[in-house]
């Protein structure tokens, strides 16, 4: 599912909103979430999961072309931890698939 598939699915289920508003709303939500992470705020969505930043310490890397050692400074990277409902629904679906395949 891509962003435009997601917009289509939401538009189909929200007939009171014009398509353009659905498009803008999806973009707004993603922008708010990206903004939160870029400014160091966590995102916590019950039943879905949480987004936070993980710290990566500085390290000595290599220039792949020349083989020279280069210092890579420490940085933060986005991290997602799935919530309980998402974890369980995904795993239960997988279990049902396995049972159907063997049954």
């Amino acid at each position: 599912m891509t962003k435009s598939d997601l917009i289509d699915a939401l538009a189909a289920q929200q007939p009171q909103l014009v398509f353009r508003d659905v498009e803008l709303a999806v973009k707004e939500l993603l922008e708010q979430m990206a903004d939160a992470l870029a400014t160091g705020d966590r995102i916590e969505v019950r039943g879905f999961g949480s987004f936070s930043l993980h710290h990566r310490p500085s390290r000595v890397g290599r220039n792949p072309k020349t083989g020279d050692a280069v210092n890579v400074p420490d940085k933060y990277v986005p991290h997602f931890k799935p919530g309980k409902e998402l974890r369980e629904r995904v795993d239960n679906a997988a279990r049902r698939e396995r049972e159907n395949n063997t049954g």
């Binding site: 599912m1 891509t2 962003k3 997601l6 699915a9 939401l10 289920q13 929200q14 909103l17 709303a25 999806v26 939500l29 993603l30 979430m33 990206a34 969505v45 039943g47 879905f48 409902e85 998402l86 629904r89 995904v90 679906a93 997988a94 698939e97």
Partner: peptide
């Protein structure tokens, strides 16, 4: 809308389909 947004993503993943949100 917010509720449905996250539900659509959960639903896709539950159906074994990855979700690709360009730029995010």
């Amino acid at each position: 809308f917010v509720e449905l947004f996250f539900e659509k993503i959960r639903h896709s993943l539950e159906n074994g389909q990855a979700v690709k949100l360009s730029g995010f």
